[in-house]
Structure formats: structure tokens, C-alpha cells
């Protein structure tokens, strides 16, 4: 959990070199920035000067920041500041200003929910604004550099993709890479007097997704494993699958305890969109399951992708989530579901 950033960089460099050696043809869909390769190729063509970072207290120690990229989750307390995801670098100054209105404590941790640029491209700027908690042998061996910059925590596949080790994509700037990665089902940590679970969901939105559960504040930060603005975004080239995505939604549902009915209690900060609770996640899971089942049935009947698209399996949800323009069109969603169910 507290590897020095220099060590992280060294590991990442190894992955980057390895990645260059086994680079594959680019196949990933463009990310929200519209850039092929998904992860981190900067920001979409938009006027960042006009973007304001909105702040919405969730509950407990957790606040939601809303800007132009993925939502940012801020946990603040006496120990310092932890954030989940970092948006675009063009907004880093505004994001830091918003964080400073919440707390003047040092930024110690950044957690990345996955590798896409709208969630990670601001890593380098925000990391530099913080520092890593370290000491003892680590400090002794590595010197002052050991505490330089906040620690960036993510599933190991995030590092592998950002460093170009897998996925066949060019590496992002090294300063954006995670410095502290984990493998397996989850990583646990204690910060600001609460337990934090970083739970890996395999092969869902990508192959390196994590949700972050703040146990005392009772807030889940989901990354793009749950959004309210579009159909589920499944980066097939990066290991995403519709069934993994549904497993992720189920995991979120399993963690939530509402006050009554489907409301209150555990709050959910989605990757994009509004603050939510159980009812919203259930509705989204319902929609995703129904469309998955329809497409699965069409595949069983031997329908081609074009026939499936023509049958409009998303018809009743299109007014809510569908679009024919932009990054994640309805067609691309149907294609992703079809492809991953056919495998």
C-alpha cells in the first residue's frame, strides 16, 4: 500500500518496455475523449475554461466533484485527503481549488477505478500536489523522493494498460501511471478513521476495474461500472464484457443497505452522472439485464449483428440512454454486448 513512488515508476517502466515488445494492433474503442486507444490521450475538444467543478457533499467524509470527465470522489479527514479518479489535466487547477475548499490537509492517495483518460489523465498534476506517507527503511533507502507525490493506487491491469504493457497502445506519460498496484480480489486500507475497500471487478467495463467502498461514510465510488448518462460502456478491446459488467452491478447492489425500500443508506457516486442510491442501481441493473437477455436470445436464434441491431433490442430504453452521436452510441453498445456474448 505504501510503496514509494519511485519504485512504482520503476515497475511501471518494466511494463512499458515489455508492452512495447509485445504491442498488438490497436483495437480499443475511442475513449470519452474520442481518442482511439481509450486510456489517456488527453481530453476531448471542448472549452475547459468554461468548465466549473461542482461540489456535492455525499455523506460522512465523502464529497462528489463533477466536472467534464468522470466524477471525482473526495474523502477528507484528519489524516489527509484521498481522491478517486482525476479527470483531465486541463482541469487539475480547478479540481485542486475545489478540493482545497473541502480540506487544507495534504493529498496522500489517488485511487484509479480504471485506465481511461477521462478518469486518469489528471493523475500527474494531482499527484504532484500531494505526497506519499512513508518513512523507515523506505525513506532511508530512497531518500526524499520516496514521499514525492501522492500514491496512485489501482488494479495492476490499469498500470499495464497505461504503460502500454498490454493492449497494444502507446504508453501514457509515466507520471500518470499508478505507483501502487494490487492483484486479486481487493485491497483494503484504513484512512481518515474508516475502512476503505478497493474491490476489483474482473472483465466488466475493462479488465482493470475497481469500485471503492468507504465503509464508515457508507459511500461507494463505482467508476464507470455504473453511470446514469449512457448505456453501459464496455471496452471490449480492454477486456470488458457485458456479463462482467452485470457482475459489477450485482456487487454494488450487494454492498448497499438502504434505509427503507430502495432509498437512502449507502450512497453511490457513479462514474458519470448524478449521485445515486440503491434504486438507481437497481433500475440500471434491470435495464442492462433485460437488454443482455434480449440480445442473448437473438444470438441463440442465429441472428447476425446487423439483424440484432435492426431488431432494436434497446428500443424502450433509447429515450433514456440511447444516442446516435458522440462517443458511446447505441449501436456501439449493442455491438459490445453482441461481441462479448458470442465469445
Amino acid at each position: 500500500m505504501r510503496k514509494p513512488s519511485a519504485a512504482g515508476r520503476a515497475i511501471a517502466l518494466v511494463f512499458a518496455v515489455a508492452g512495447l515488445a509485445c504491442a498488438q494492433p490497436a483495437a480499443a474503442p475511442p475513449d470519452r475523449a474520442g481518442n482511439r486507444g481509450g486510456p489517456n490521450r488527453g481530453a476531448p475538444a471542448q472549452n475547459f475554461d468554461a468548465v466549473e467543478i461542482q461540489t456535492l457533499p455525499a455523506q460522512g467524509r465523502v464529497t462528489m466533484l463533477v466536472g467534464a470527465g468522470g466524477n471525482i470522489t473526495v474523502q477528507a479527514g484528519n489524516d489527509g485527503i484521498l481522491i478517486v479518479d482525476t479527470e483531465y489535466p486541463q482541469l487539475s487547477g480547478k479540481i485542486l481549488a475545489a478540493i482545497r475548499k473541502i480540506s487544507d490537509k495534504p493529498l496522500h492517495y489517488i485511487i484509479n477505478t480504471h485506465y481511461h483518460g477521462d478518469h486518469t489523465a489528471g493523475n500527474e498534476n494531482l499527484r504532484k500536489a500531494g505526497n506519499t506517507i512513508t518513512g523507515g527503511n523506505v525513506q532511508g533507502d530512497l531518500g526524499a523522493e520516496a514521499s514525492e507525490g501522492a500514491a496512485v493506487i489501482a488494479h495492476n491491469n490499469v498500470l499495464e494498460r497505461m504503460s502500454g504493457a498490454i493492449g497494444g497502445q502507446p504508453a501514457t506519460p509515466q507520471g500518470t501511471w499508478p505507483t501502487d498496484t494490487f492483484v486479486g480480489e481487493e485491497k483494503k486500507m484504513w484512512f481518515n478513521n474508516e475502512g476503505i475497500e478497493i474491490i476489483h471487478i474482473p472483465n466488466a467495463h475493462t479488465d482493470g476495474d475497481s469500485i471503492v467502498f468507504f465503509r464508515k461514510s457508507d459511500v461507494i465510488s463505482t467508476g464507470d461500472l455504473f453511470v446514469t448518462t449512457t448505456y453501459p460502456i464496455i471496452d471490449v478491446a480492454a477486456g470488458g464484457t457485458i456479463n462482467g459488467y452485470l457482475d459489477g452491478l450485482q456487487k454494488i447492489v450487494d454492498l448497499i443497505i438502504p434505509v427503507y425500500g430502495q432509498e437512502g443508506g449507502t450512497l453511490v457516486i457513479p462514474g458519470h452522472g448524478r449521485l445515486c442510491d440503491l434504486g438507481d442501481v437497481l433500475n440500471y441493473r434491470e435495464m442492462t439485464t433485460i437488454i443482455r437477455d434480449r440480445i442473448q436470445d437473438m444470438i441463440k436464434k442465429g441472428m447476425t449483428l446487423e439483424q440484432v441491431k435492426a431488431a432494436k433490442p434497446t428500443f424502450d430504453y433509447d429515450p433514456l440512454y440511447g444516442t446516435t452521436t458522440g462517443f458511446w452510441t447505441t449501436d456501439r453498445f449493442v455491438e459490445a454486448v453482441y461481441q462479448t456474448l458470442k465469445k
Binding site: V253, Y260, G261, Q262, L278, L282, E286, F315, D316, D318
Partner: peptide
Amino acid sequence: ADRLRGETWDASLITLPEYQCRV
């Protein structure tokens, strides 16, 4: 679109534990 929501709705949905107390 709403007509299709209705046509494909199954009342058994509200037997799911998470839906039983939906207000």
C-alpha cells in the same frame, strides 16, 4: 417506448427482495 416497457414487464419482478418494499 413505454408501451414496450409495459409489454415486457413481468409482475414477478416485485417478488425480488430488493423490490418488495419499493415505495
